[in-house]
Design a protein around this nucleic acid. Structure first.
Lengths: 243, 243
DNA sequence: CAGTGGTCTAGACCACTGA
DNA sequence: CAGTGGTCTAGACCACTGA
């Protein structure tokens, strides 16, 4: 069975894309079982009448996509059993709401410097008791409270952080508009809100909430730690995955 | 500031990797602001004394990583403001528990064929009222119930599904050991368990749970729909992201 | 028009693996 | 040793954009 996209690729696409699609189709049809030896570069060169650089690019991209495994001196193999793992996208709430064409508002409940308690100081990589920035902001979609954002920021990474009007730009925008390279750690869990969070989100104290904790780092230092609390009845994360 | 890894790359790495690292470092240092024009292929060829194919590979890989944007006839630009979105890995619970070096057990509460109610039939892409496979399995880590897996399977995609011993292999392993290419849709939310789920997971009826709904498709048909319920106090998802 | 990136070729040298 | 993939070169033709 050949899908329209497949046919389109086969027709006018550049040679490296045709080779790639041929191998991809074969993998989808089970022509090469996981772990099986696939055609060598030389064989593909002969089959398609193209140069080795061209099939090499096709194979290198398939490897980058995790569909094949290549070993120098040995050969190219169909990737072993697919890890059934998947990725889920977590985005800035502001973007998400705007993309739905809805109104986003933020109410700032806290915006100040504080002495960092030892545990937080350790996570941010600053001296215990030194000052850190703290904001507590509730985000609304069309007037409905959707997220309570409790955030600490390392002053060394964003000295001007407290000077912004967070009803106009989000902390995420402020913190990452300049930094090009960073990495993040996430955890997601279901939990009851704190009493304060329940009040700010206008929910019952026992309503299940989706709690995302995000820690963001540059190569050298922690930039910020955020606790994002969402009412379970109003918010869910969605994602999709294609191997 | 040059990290040890950077130095290592600069020293002995192949030329395309050196060009790539040079551009990556420049982006990290803010040498090219988001949206700014970066050196052309010809300029990099002159700078590094390598062939155009070599700098082309470096730039193509940076584009694949989302660090630069290239437009034919125009040039290469530093990628605009990083979307602050991130990916989170969702894995098979069995793998996860084993990787922690713990004991995984499964108790099968249901394993049978059922007539599909209309809503479910539509989601699986089968005729309403036709038979589908249904399993209800509770997964334990070291004797503690961690996940309640309520799963429906399209019989056309896995005719032998009900014949397996799910105390020995997981549905995920059974369903995806053969299929090479598939895609999945996810949703994650916080919710109360149903009465049955609370009982099976041995938790209070009002304990917040992390509920993952996963729909999996081949190119043509829906394979399976699973509702995975985890006690919020015992389970959290974790992930990390590097742009 | 000059400059850009997209792609390909036909060779090359090399490191590596396994017989 | 023959076969594999990793990488590079020095050219080429092309489509595209903007002056």
């Amino acid at each position: 069975m050949v899908s329209p996209e497949t046919a389109a690729v086969a027709a006018s696409a550049p040679p490296f894309a045709r080779v790639k699609q041929f191998l991809k189709d074969g993998l989808a049809e089970g022509r090469w079982a996981p772990g099986a030896l696939m055609p060598s570069e030389a064989e593909l060169v002969a089959m398609f009448g193209v140069s080795r650089m061209t099939v090499n690019r096709a194979l290198r991209e398939l490897q980058a996509e995790g569909l094949v495994v290549r070993t120098q001196g040995v050969g190219t193999f169909a990737a072993p059993l697919h890890k059934v793992s998947s990725t889920l996208t977590i985005r800035d709430l502001h973007e998400e709401v705007q993309e739905r064409g809805h109104r986003h508002e933020a109410v700032v409940h806290l915006q100040r410097r504080e002495a960092a308690p030892p545990a937080l100081a350790a996570q941010l990589g600053v001296a215990a008791g030194s000052e850190v920035f703290h904001t507590l902001i509730v985000h609304f979609e069309n007037g409905v409270p959707l997220q309570c954002e409790d955030r600490y920021v390392n002053p060394a990474c964003a000295p001007g952080y407290l000077g912004h009007d967070f009803t106009r730009t989000t902390p995420t925008q402020v913190l990452f508009e300049s930094t090009a390279l960073w990495r993040a750690q996430y955890s997601i869990e279901a939990a009851r809100p704190t009493a304060q969070e329940a009040r700010l989100l206008q929910i019952a104290p026992d309503e299940p909430c989706l709690v995302v904790v995000r820690r963001t780092f540059t190569r050298d230092a922690a930039i910020t730690i955020a606790r994002l609390v969402h009412p379970g009845s109003r918010y869910q994360l969605e994602g999709q995955f294609t191997p």
